[in-house]
Amino acid sequence: MIQLHHVNKRFEQFEAIKDVSLTIDKGEIYGIIGASGAGKSTLLRLINLLEVPDTGAVEVNGRDLTKLRGKRLRDARKSIGMIFQGFNLVANKTVYENIAVSLELSNYPRKERRGRVEECLRFVGLEDFMKKYPAQLSGGQKQRVAIARALANKPEFLLCDEPTSSLDPNSTAEVLKVLEDVNKRLGVTIVIVSHEMDVIKSLCTQVTVMANGEVYETVRTKPKGVKHIDNNPKYFVDQLAKDGEVDRA
């Protein structure tokens, strides 16, 4: 369980987060949505203390992370995976090395690393891409590698910062499917920040709407499931035609 208690964060003159409290239950897919600058990314980054709150407490499984320093904070972070809009893979490491580094950091037994990396890659459907470099992958594949990397240490939580915002519709669907799997099959609690309503609607069981650094409202929702997206150009034409007239040239 993740609980934020009256958290505040200011960047110089700008109050990014104003007195936010929220509770994210185990097993949920929790959405945070809002306009640009509403504070949703900052809020997410407060959860693993990538941003340190000025005041307030960040409790993960009952432990206040703001009270931890050095190695204890680093260990706490290992149970919270994170993925980013820009993927943030190490471009000079192969897919295998990108995932293995996360195991090295947590002193995962050397002999079992290879097996664990393979297992994670199989989960995201990229077991044949081990020796490739990120530059050789599509956006969706990169994000799946990032998910595999985040899962390597068997985290309880997965924080997703605009995970599909730089992807095309197909890749978006592909990544959302994997996230759904991560939650259903592995029981990982997921927090997704996104400005895309479709993304939030398809997965989330509870959604907080942010505005001006504050919680506007939190609602329970029924996940609609990930839309199947066709790979052919007709899909795009149909989507275009759906909400208005298309003047076929």
């Binding site: 693993n48 990538l50 190695k71 680093r74 260990d75 706490a76 972070r77 290992k78 919270i80 995976g81 994170m82 980013f84 820009g86 993927f87 943030n88 893979l89 190490v90 471009a91 000079n92 490491k93 580094v101 996360s102 090295e104 950091l105 947590s106 990032a146 990397r149 240490n153 924080l159």
Partner: peptide, 30 residues
């Protein structure tokens, strides 16, 4: 070196030393 890579490292619980040797220098090596 893209800041995001280091951020990912920190989010994985990397120490400063690990960030330097396992991420920063690897990405900047050429």
């Amino acid at each position: 070196v893209p800041k995001g890579v280091l951020e990912a490292a920190v989010s994985m619980g990397a120490s400063v030393r690990s960030v330097i040797f396992k991420f920063l220098y690897v990405e900047a090596r050429s």
